[in-house]
Design a protein around this nucleic acid. Sequence first.
DNA 1: ATCAATTCTTGCAATCATTATAAAATTAGA
DNA 2: TCTAATTTTATAATGATTGCAAGAATTGAT
Lengths: 136, 136
Amino acid sequence: MKISFDDPSTALISRKVRPSYQRIKVLEYLIKNQCHPTVDQIFQDLQGEIPTLSKSTIYNTLKLFAAAGLIRVITIEENETRYDILTEDHGHFKCEKCGAIYNFAVDVDALATGDLTGFKVMEKNVYFKGICPKCL
Amino acid sequence: MKISFDDPSTALISRKVRPSYQRIKVLEYLIKNQCHPTVDQIFQDLQGEIPTLSKSTIYNTLKLFAAAGLIRVITIEENETRYDILTEDHGHFKCEKCGAIYNFAVDVDALATGDLTGFKVMEKNVYFKGICPKCL
DNA sequence: ATCAATTCTTGCAATCATTATAAAATTAGA
DNA sequence: TCTAATTTTATAATGATTGCAAGAATTGAT
């Protein structure tokens, strides 16, 4: 189940996703920039390498990656969605001042789920909000 | 710090929010309907009682309530924001099939936060996704 | 109670992220 | 190389949220 992201192309193939040029570039970008980018950030940064790139492609690609279980969708923001390469389980901390999003280790399985008998839990998310050290 | 929601009007006053007719009705609605409504649901349901109601008022009011610490903003959905009266800490479970959102008890303080020294944590959120018993 | 000043509500226009769609480009297999 | 399927692109459409300006309601001082 664990995916190796050493080679973007083979990671895509292992998930039955055709490794097109754009898809490889987007995945490479997500591996290098584990900063929970928005669609617009990905688009802006990749335009240099791929001048003909369309924002639709980013949307299509991210939706495909999420369905294939390669990435996770983060919805801390009220307006904009962010994306995260699937690594070990971790929580997200959002600074309400500067907007930065940090990762932190968290043992999600330690969370009590007594109320959830009969539910099929497929994804566990933890996010905190507050002020980061830089802004304090 | 704990708010009593027995009387909406006094709850508003205790948080330094002027208890206008619309605000009282919105707060009453949130107390009665602890089902994480969207802006549109609140608007549709309150239009019967307040024919002149505007959706802007709902947005203004909810923003004000959130700033006053009366409600919490839930961003599980990718597109629409939901709102929740502040009660005890609880997690949210979203069924990916029917879209319903359930509450479940969770001990958020049991979560390890070792990585977050130097951070000022103001809000802790836990949400799961999966399939609910009705849809299984 | 009256009047002026402030605050709240309303309606509509503007914004912005996301989705839909159809045409053009690319790729895979014969 | 040729054809069919897939992918990318560009543009238009959608839909939630915000901005703004005018009207309505409320407060406090006289």
